[in-house]
Write a protein that binds this DNA or RNA. Sequence first.
DNA 1: AATTTAAATGCAACACGGTTGCATTTGTAA
DNA 2: TTACAAATGCAACCGTGTTGCATTTAAATT
Lengths: 134, 134
Amino acid sequence: MDNQQSEQLLQRKGLKKTKLRHALIQHFIKTQHAQSYADIKQALMEATDKSTLYRNLTAFEHAGLIHSINDYSGVTKYAFGEAPIQGNEHAHFVCECCETVYCMDGLAPLQLDIPKGFRAKRVQTIIRGICADC
Amino acid sequence: MDNQQSEQLLQRKGLKKTKLRHALIQHFIKTQHAQSYADIKQALMEATDKSTLYRNLTAFEHAGLIHSINDYSGVTKYAFGEAPIQGNEHAHFVCECCETVYCMDGLAPLQLDIPKGFRAKRVQTIIRGICADC
DNA sequence: AATTTAAATGCAACACGGTTGCATTTGTAA
DNA sequence: TTACAAATGCAACCGTGTTGCATTTAAATT
């Protein structure tokens, strides 16, 4: 049982160490791809309370441990890592086949030609297609 | 009462003419911006059944009368006009202040550099910022 | 105009994501 | 060990969206 990594992370972010939080972090590290509430719930076999889980997800996001993603599905998903900062936004790729959501760094930014009067602050791009595994 | 436009549209799409459908089309023509279920419900003062409204929205979308938009809010919104066709996708601008969703045509397309193995089919871009009215 | 038929409606019930209030438990610092 | 704030568990709730079914209605047929 390798709690060291999660232990460190929680400590560094000033978050109390609890069983669920350790499990959550391990899960995010292990899975790589964006996770919905349902995904997580299913993965953590131990009966986990819904509100507690949601509260931890928002706490983690607030602490910069994970970031939330809004794909077409209508449900929020979460992925490990800091939220993309201004000017360094990354795109998300949603596989139409397996529904996996990938974070894609290093894509060329969008060339925007916004009408006058409009001020763009954040750009989120979602790419739908078929992933390398399908 | 100018039903002519909606009359024509429904006829052309092979949809039966009902009170609600006329009202819906008028509403979409009048409002310009993307409408959520709640927006529409509120606008059509007459007590409208939820499932009927949703069924009509999907029918309209299927017929190409309106298209659906998925912004960050988690709720689907609908806007008048055909869905953007392949290669001609338009971006959506969400105002952080008034939450209005604008369809933005004629923006320069995204320059994509997708990792090998991945095949992109649809790209949706959502721009958050402050609109001209705010 | 009366009849027929398929589609549209209204209603109730449901599934699911997500939130909130509150009592109880637990981590941690003193 | 104690004390306090934060985390948990539970129940109840809200909003979006869907489904099944009986009833009504638009529109094609006679």
